[in-house]
Simulated scan of single mutants.
Amino acid sequence: MSDTGQPPRFAPTKEEIETLALAALSRLPGPFRDHLSDVVLFVEEFADADILAEMEIDDPFGLTGLYSGRPVGQEAQTGDTPPTVHLFRRPLLDEWVETGVALDALITHVVVHEIGHHFGLSDLDMHVLEDMVAP
């Protein structure tokens, strides 16, 4: 117990981050949710070294999320893997602490941005969508 009589607070786990991400996805308007059944969500500690090198990112804390796959409307090719959204826990937690933004709002922001790539949305469209699903 801490001096306040409260149990110590630990950083949110990958499972807690996933719960927040799934909640953000559930708030998306139906037409968007209807096209997400094949998107796979992963929560990992950090992006792997190959992804960081490919994106020319030197600091592993510099990437909070990543979409991989073909946007909706592009014809699938033989051998395509399902589209994925990766959230990177440690960079998300660092941004949460540094910015003071509520964690659910930060996760929503990153999820909407990555899902926006799935739909081929512009940055402006992503901001509008984010405002619609804000926690």
Rank of each mutant, 00 (worst) to 15 (best):
P82R: 15
F61I: 03
L87V: 02
F88N: 13
L87K: 02
R89G: 01
I57F: 07
L36C: 05
I57H: 12
I107F: 03
L92T: 00
P60N: 06
T81F: 11
Y67L: 01
L41E: 05
P60S: 03
P91H: 09
D48F: 02
D58M: 06
H86K: 13
T84L: 05
V72N: 11
W96S: 04
D94Q: 11
G79Q: 13
V97N: 10
L92S: 00
A53R: 12
P60E: 00
P83H: 06
V85K: 09
V101N: 10
R90V: 14
A49H: 12
E56M: 12
E44Q: 01
D59T: 03
F32S: 08
D104G: 04
D104K: 11
D50K: 06
E54W: 01
A105P: 00
R90T: 13
R89K: 05
L92G: 01
I51P: 04
Y67P: 13
A49T: 13
L87F: 09
A105L: 08
P31C: 01
V43E: 07
W96M: 05
L93F: 09
D38N: 05
M55P: 04
G62W: 00
W96K: 05
E75K: 11
F42D: 14
L92D: 00
L66V: 03
A47D: 08
